[in-house]
Design a protein around this nucleic acid. Structure first.
Length: 278
DNA sequence: ACGCCCGCCTGTAAGC
DNA sequence: TGCTTACAGGCGGGCG
């Protein structure tokens, strides 16, 4: 379940490994992974011969800019991985797209559950934005703002905090796992209503969001027990060791030692400390 | 506007 | 042991 910190980790490594490199060949063996292109060969044709000139992240989307202004967009969904490998290494099961570079090995898209996708898009002429990503809200690390401005956005809404900070139209990049960690750090319950926050709580929420995500990037993201999340080199992250509540039902709260609760909101598990979070 | 639910998927684990 | 069921949850869509 890659979220913002995992995608940012992959982006930084893709930037180092593939910027300046030319795409030699593209193989699509799983058409569902390029489903925005009704014809997979059109996806291939738009990539072959192009050079990667830069990378950008928007929420959970990784963008690889090409030398003809087009952009290769990657979204991991639940189980997508971008892995670098040499052509000789055996391809893992569920390898759906392989992009071979001149003098830089392969970039493989592996995705068992096929919720993820790759597509090529063209930015608008003047603003550099992609129509495909226009629905995304602000990026918590790229679009930092005064906490008072965040408060204005927050109190304009009347909804529970957890669904709100996970709403990609509102904030881009936070999923179920980091939402729980952020809300614990802020001392706020997941079902707290957004318009009831005091100024101090708004500031704490904003700070917790930026700090939690920044720390998670420093530790190269979180890999849970299934070790589904892997970075570009196939290695797991380290931030899961620093999780306070997520996937820690029944354990002691690191702050007050009371037992961490697990509840379901809308089919999603939420972990929180009923004592620390108000 | 909000809060639900479903469908899309596969791998893993728990239950009978 | 072997089958069935639940669960994991990102995201778009639908419905009340």
């Amino acid at each position: 379940m890659p979220e913002l910190p995992e995608i940012e980790t992959i982006r930084r490594d893709v930037d180092k490994e593939f910027v300046g490199k030319k795409i030699k060949r593209v193989e699509v063996t799983g058409a569902r992974s390029v489903r925005r292109h009704p014809d997979a060969s059109e996806f291939v044709a738009r990539l072959e011969g192009r050079k990667v000139v830069g990378t950008v992240r928007r929420g959970k989307y990784l963008l690889m800019r090409l030398d003809n202004r087009e952009v290769l967009v990657a979204h991991m969904g639940m189980s997508g991985q971008l892995l670098t490998a040499t052509p000789k290494e055996p391809r893992p099961k569920h390898t759906h797209v392989v992009i071979s570079f001149v003098a830089a090995g392969e970039l493989r898209f592996v995705d068992p559950r096929t919720f993820g996708e790759l597509f090529v898009a063209v930015p608008h002429a003047l603003e550099e934005e992609l129509a495909e990503l226009a629905h995304l809200g602000f990026d918590p690390l790229e679009d930092q703002m005064a906490w008072t401005q965040f408060g204005q956005l927050l109190t304009a809404r009347k909804t529970k905090l957890k669904p709100l900070i996970m709403d990609q139209h509102f904030i881009a990049g936070i999923g179920n796992m980091y939402a729980d960690e952020i809300l614990f750090a802020a001392g706020l319950r997941p079902d707290r209503s957004s318009e009831t926050l005091t100024a101090q709580e708004i500031r704490r929420l904003y700070r917790s969001m930026v700090e939690t995500l920044t720390e998670a990037v420093k530790h190269r993201g979180s890999s849970l027990a299934d070790e589904q999340y892997r970075d570009l080199f196939g290695d797991i992250g380290a931030f899961q060791r620093l999780h306070n509540v997520y996937d820690r039902e029944g354990e002691a709260c690191p702050r007050c030692r009371s037992v961490i609760s697990r509840v379901k909101y809308g089919g999603r598990s939420s972990f929180f400390c009923a004592h620390c979070q108000v």
